[in-house]
Design a protein around this nucleic acid. Structure first.
Lengths: 275, 275
DNA sequence: CAAAATACGTAACATACGGTACAGCGCTCC
DNA sequence: GGAGCGCTGTACCGTATGTTACGTATTTTG
C-alpha cells in the first residue's frame, strides 16, 4: 500500500517519459504546493505543456486534475492535523504503553493553541472581565464538568457568574434573566446536543453574546457564537478528549484573573486581604 | 505588520457581520485547508452562500479569491520549508502571555506521567474494571468537575458508578452504602478540604479502597489511600492547574474502557450494538 | 536507413468556477 | 411605528480552467 503521493511518484518516475519526469521532479522539488496551483502554472514551472501535466497525473492513477488536487489536500490535512507524525517532536525516550494517549493529548494542545490567536483570547478575556453583565456557563453530557470548573473559578473573582445545571427545564427558564450585556459560555463537542443548540439559538435571539468551546468540527452553535474556540479532541481511545479545551479554560481563567487584578477592582482587593 | 492571514482574520473578526464571521471561524477551525478548496466547497462547509465567502475575502483585503488562495499557499510554503520553526509555537519574540501557561502545563503533564508507573496505572484500572463492587467519586471545590467528568464516562460502561455531589450532609450519609468491595475515587488538591479528609477517613474505616488524585504535595488523604496519583499543578497563574490530573483521568477512562471491552462484558456488547 | 510507434505541443472546446446585479429581509435608529 | 441602512442569498453572466483532438517531432526497432 502506497501511503503518500510523493512515494507513488518516486515509484513510477523511472517508467515515465522525459516530459512527465520533469513534471514529477518539479512537483517533488516544492512538494506539494505546485500541485495545488492550476495546470497552467504547474506546466509553466515544469517547462512543459499543460497536456503533459494532465498525462502525468493520469499516469499516477487519477481520473482528472481536480481529483489529484483533492488527494494532495487530504494528505496535507493529515499532516497538519497530526503533528506527531511530523519528524519533529522529540520521540521522548521512555515513551511507554500509556504514552500514545499522552503524546496525542500533548499534540492536541499544541495544535489547539496554534489555531488560537492572542487577539482572539484577548477579546474573550475582555468580554469575560467586563462586568456590566452576567456570565452563564453550561455544557453537554461530558463537557458540563468543564463549565463547572470554569464557573467555580470565575465566581470567586467576580459576581454574577452562574453555572446552569440540572434538568433542562430548569436552565431553559433561566433564559428570562439573559439580555444583551450578558455572556453565555457553552461547551459542546460531538455528538452535539440538540437541547444545547436550541438553547444557544434562543439566547442569541435575546442578544446574549455566546462564547463556544467545541471540537474541530464545530458544533452547529458556532452559527450563533460571537467567539468560537475549536479544540482538538482526537486520541487513541474510545472517547474523545476534552483535555485541550480544559487547558484553554485554565488559560482563560488565569488571564481573566490577571485582567481583573490589573483593573484593581474592589472585589479583588478584598479577596487579597482575606488571604 | 500582520504576518499571517490567520492573524489578519482574528484582527478583523470582531468587525464582521454574522455570515462572514462564520466563514472566518470555519477557516480558522481547519486552517488553511478549506481556503484552498473552491468557493462552493468553502461556502458549503461554512453553511453560507458563495457571495458571502467572496465578501469575506474582499474584507480581508484581497482583490479576488485566487489572490486569497495564493496568499494561503505562500504561507503554507513558508511553513513547510522550515519545519524546524514549527516545533511548538515558536518562542516568538512577542510571545504573549498564553505561551508560558501552555508550556508549563505541558511540562506538568510530562512530569506527572514520568512519576507514574505503568504498574500503578494498571492496578488502578484493574480495580476500577473489577465490577464486584460499587464506585463512588467525589472532589473538592475546584476538582469536583474532574470527578464528574470521570463519573460521566465510567457510568456508561459499567453499572454502580455514583458521583457524590450536592451538600456535604447528603454525600456523607452515602457512607452507609459503602463497603469492602467498593472503590472511592477522591480528588483533593490544595487547599485540602477538611470535609473530604474526614470523609475519606471514615470510608477507609469501613474498608473502602480509596484512589486519590492530588497534587505533588499530597493531600493528607494519601494516608488512607490505596492508590495515590500525584499531579503537577504549578503554572504561572494565580490558580493551580488541574490539567495534568485531567489527562490522567482521561487516560484511565480509556484504559478501563479497553479493559472492559477485552473482558467482553455483556454491557459493552449491548452498548456497541446500540451505536 | 526506413518505418512505425510513442511522445509532445498547439489550438479549439466545454465545463464549472468565480464574480456581480438585484431583491428580500431583518435590524437599527429616528 | 416607520424609514433607512446593511446584510444575505438567488440567479445569472463572463471567463479562466481543465480537457480533448490532432498534427508534428522524436525516438525506437527491424
Amino acid at each position: 500500500m502506497v501511503s503518500s503521493i510523493a512515494e507513488l511518484i518516486s515509484d513510477r518516475i523511472g517508467t515515465m517519459p522525459a516530459g512527465e519526469r520533469r513534471a514529477a521532479q518539479t512537483l517533488i522539488a516544492s512538494y506539494p504546493l505546485i500541485g495545488l496551483k492550476t495546470v497552467a502554472e504547474f506546466s509553466a514551472a515544469a517547462g512543459v505543456s499543460s497536456p503533459t501535466i494532465l498525462r502525468f497525473v493520469a499516469r499516477l492513477g487519477f481520473q482528472n486534475y481536480p481529483e489529484f488536487q483533492s488527494a494532495l489536500q487530504d494528505e496535507l490535512a493529515a499532516q497538519l492535523q497530526s503533528p506527531a507524525s511530523r519528524t519533529l517532536n522529540p520521540p521522548s525516550p521512555g515513551s511507554s504503553a500509556v504514552s500514545p494517549m499522552l503524546e496525542a493529548t500533548l499534540d492536541n494542545m499544541r495544535e489547539t493553541f496554534r489555531h488560537l490567536s492572542d487577539k482572539q483570547l484577548a477579546d474573550i478575556v475582555a468580554k469575560l472581565a467586563d462586568r456590566r453583565g452576567k456570565t452563564f456557563l453550561i455544557g453537554g453530557r461530558f463537557t458540563d464538568p468543564l463549565a463547572r470548573y470554569m464557573a467555580a473559578h470565575l465566581a470567586i473573582i467576580q459576581p454574577n457568574v452562574f453555572h446552569l445545571g440540572g434538568q433542562e427545564s430548569v436552565w431553559r427558564d433561566r433564559l428570562i434573566d439573559m439580555g444583551k450585556r450578558d455572556v453565555l459560555v457553552i461547551f459542546d463537542i460531538r455528538r452535539y446536543q440538540d437541547s444545547l443548540v436550541r438553547f444557544a439559538e434562543t439566547a442569541n435571539q435575546r442578544g446574549v453574546q455566546i462564547v463556544l468551546f467545541t471540537d474541530q468540527w464545530l458544533s452547529p452553535i458556532a452559527r450563533f457564537a460571537r467567539h468560537v474556540i475549536a479544540g482538538r479532541t482526537a486520541v487513541p481511545s474510545a472517547w474523545d478528549s476534552s483535555a485541550a479545551l480544559f487547558v484553554v479554560v485554565e488559560t482563560l481563567i488565569g488571564a481573566v484573573t490577571r485582567q481583573l487584578e490589573a483593573d484593581g477592582t474592589k472585589r479583588i482587593r478584598e479577596l487579597e486581604s482575606l488571604r
